[in-house]
């Protein structure tokens, strides 16, 4: 019973997206009492792929911009957080944890509030209308949480493994590369997922910091639905579904890794 409720709860808005996307009648979103469109059609998906509707003329370029920002955020968050957490938890850095604890100060002011000073700072750095301003903001906000998770996870790796490697003559870089990195991959996968979702969910930074057509992301394009009385609903929902796929695919790909994080925790305490 609880299972069925949870299923309906989780799927309802997704189902609604499909319902609109599969309805062949252009511009019609009335739900006429049918639980499924009478003549479902993939026409709206074709329209998106061919960039054949209002707003969707630059679908592929906008998707490319989103992917670029998402991937860079993901890679940089993983690299920066992994290096920092290794330095703090496994190297003789006396006050290193001061920095990683201070990193949580990032959350004293909510991300969305910082957009106002950030807008000016991006100018000062010469990053106005530059995707790198958005990427830097995302990485700066994702990393403190990533370091928090990684430090917790690193505690499960026995320090004896490091010592054994050092006795065998491994330098600190080798300890990082051969011991720490392979053993933390499940946690790194979870962090990568977290960073991608953060970038993929963002609207505010991409809207404010990227003003030109050329850099516009798909999220910003889709938000224009709101200023329009009669937008191409079916195609827009089809585009929304396609935009939703990459993080879902990544979650499925990493599912094993993420559940490995869970099981190691279970046996390790």
């Amino acid at each position: 019973m609880l299972g069925i409720l949870l299923l309906i709860w989780s799927v309802a808005p997704i189902y609604n997206m499909l319902l609109i996307a599969l309805d062949p009648e252009e511009g019609e979103v009335e739900f006429s009492g049918n639980i499924w469109p009478p003549e479902p059609s993939l026409e709206s998906f074709r329209v998106v792929l061919m960039q054949d509707a209002r707003y969707l003329e630059h679908f592929w370029r906008q998707l490319g911009n989103s992917v670029y920002i998402g991937l860079m955020t993901m890679v940089l968050t993983v690299v920066v957080a992994s290096l920092a957490s290794f330095a703090v938890s496994r190297m003789p850095l006396k006050h290193g944890s001061l920095l990683t604890n201070a990193s949580l100060l990032t959350y004293t002011i909510p991300v969305s509030f910082l957009i106002f000073p950030f807008y000016r700072i991006a100018h000062a750095y010469g990053l106005s209308n530059d995707p790198w301003a958005v990427i830097a903001a995302h990485v700066a906000f994702a990393t403190p949480f990533a370091i928090l998770i990684l430090r917790q996870y690193a505690r499960l790796i026995p320090i004896e493994l490091d010592d054994a490697a050092r006795v065998d003559g491994a330098s600190s870089i080798q300890v990082y590369w051969r011991v720490h990195l392979p053993l933390t991959t499940p946690a790194l996968g979870a962090i990568a997922m977290y960073a991608l979702v953060l970038a993929w969910n963002d609207y505010l930074y991409q809207f404010v910091l990227l003003s030109s057509e050329k850099h516009m992301t798909l999220a910003v394009m889709q938000a224009q639905l709101f200023d329009d009385a009669d937008p191409p609903w079916n195609a827009m929902m089809a585009a929304a579904i396609m935009y939703s796929l990459p993080p879902v695919a990544m979650f499925f790909a990493l599912r094993r890794r993420i559940s490995a994080v869970l099981t190691i925790r279970g046996s390790g305490g």
Partner: peptide, 24 residues
Amino acid sequence: LAIAFIAPYAALFLAFALYPIGYA
């Protein structure tokens, strides 16, 4: 090496977290 490892985050934190907060 430890300083080199932590430097990227330190730079990021100063330029894109602490500075915007101070500016705010």
